[in-house]
């Protein structure tokens, strides 16, 4: 569906995307995980043919965005990071008029708008002004709107940023349904739980580069241990305690507010730490996550 080789985006002297390679297959959910400013949005804008490629090769749906931008966009659904809904118009009008941008015939569009309202859980809000909707509703409407042209590929740039947990789960459910129905999804996010939930494969981006690629479980097994023990000490003492903990784990990471021990069996290590007379203020054993992968690869947390 999408293939990039040496894809680069520069704004003046600043290199936002630095020679990245990736390949996205039909029907998969592909993620771009990374902190703000990693180059995810710039990559998405190039793939959606909204922003010209500075250097490298890019093919979307077998076409070259340089020459066939509008033709490609006709087959894409785009959920931008910031909503571009028309707040003055009704929910239904937003879907309808967006469909007309794609020249979907009126007779086809009317019933399609109704089924998309249902898809977005907005049937009873169809006549309301978009201005009156909650953030989660607006986001669902933006996603429904991106589907109005029946795209083969849907690009979602941070679909759930700024939403409360309940709204996020409802949205994930909708995206999961799309995936089940065979739509290819590209998702950028800085939430590791979102990437783990939705993505078949993903790349981890940092400073415009891809630092790792694979499925969430394979990334975790490649770059992290099975489990993690999190120990919290009095503020300012994390560094000092980390020294004493070196012997308990294959790797130790020190964060401003806690120490992470990368181990195979968390509970066992926790027990050993207690036996050694070390008394953290709080302790927790958990499974490794993409957050740990990111920390390992970049030395920084995803979300601060």
């Amino acid at each position: 569906m999408v293939e990039a080789r040496g894809l680069t985006k520069r704004f003046g002297d600043f290199t936002a995307v630095d020679a990245v390679d990736f390949r996205i297959e039909r029907g998969e959910a592909f993620g771009f995980l990374g902190p703000n400013g990693a180059g995810k949005t710039s990559t998405m804008r190039m793939v959606s043919c909204l922003s010209p490629v500075t250097a490298g090769e890019l093919s979307v749906l077998g076409m070259d965005p340089r020459h066939e931008g509008p033709r490609i966009r006709g087959r894409l659904g785009l959920v931008p990071q910031e909503d571009t809904l028309d707040l003055e118009l009704s929910v239904r009008d937003n879907l309808y008029l967006y469909g007309r941008y794609f020249d979907v015939a009126k007779a086809v569009l009317r019933p399609r708008v109704e089924s998309l309202l249902e898809f977005a859980h907005l049937t009873d809000r169809g006549g309301d002004k978009v201005d009156d909707l909650s953030g989660g509703m607006k986001r669902r409407l933006t996603i429904a709107r991106a589907l109005v042209s029946e795209p083969e590929l849907v690009i979602l740039d941070e679909p759930t940023t700024g939403l409360d947990p309940q709204a996020r789960h409802l949205l994930w459910d909708r995206l999961y349904r799309l995936k089940q129905d065979g739509v290819t999804l590209i998702i950028t996010t800085h939430y590791m739980d979102e990437a783990e939930q939705l993505c078949d494969r993903l790349v981890v981006m940092d400073h415009g580069r891809i630092v790792a690629a694979g499925s969430p479980p394979s990334l975790i097994s490649e770059w992290s241990s099975k489990e993690v023990v999190e120990l919290r000490f009095a503020s300012g003492r994390q560094e000092e305690m980390a020294g004493a903990l070196g012997g308990f784990a294959e790797r130790v990471e020190v964060l401003p507010d806690r120490v992470l021990l990368y181990v195979d069996d968390g509970d066992e290590v926790l027990l050993k730490v207690r036996e050694a007379g070390i008394r953290p203020e709080s302790a927790l054993a958990r499974r490794s996550s993409l957050e740990d992968v990111f920390l390992r690869l970049t030395g920084r947390s995803l979300v601060d």
Binding site: R26, G74, R75, A105, V108, P111, S149, E150, Q180, D181
Partner: peptide, 22 residues
């Protein structure tokens, strides 16, 4: 894989015959 784009969730939407075109 070659650009056929029907089926799946689309089948549930009415009027699937008209993809966007230029």
């Amino acid at each position: 894989r070659g650009g056929e784009r029907r089926g799946g969730w689309r089948a549930r939407l009415p009027g699937s015959a008209a993809p966007a075109r230029l």
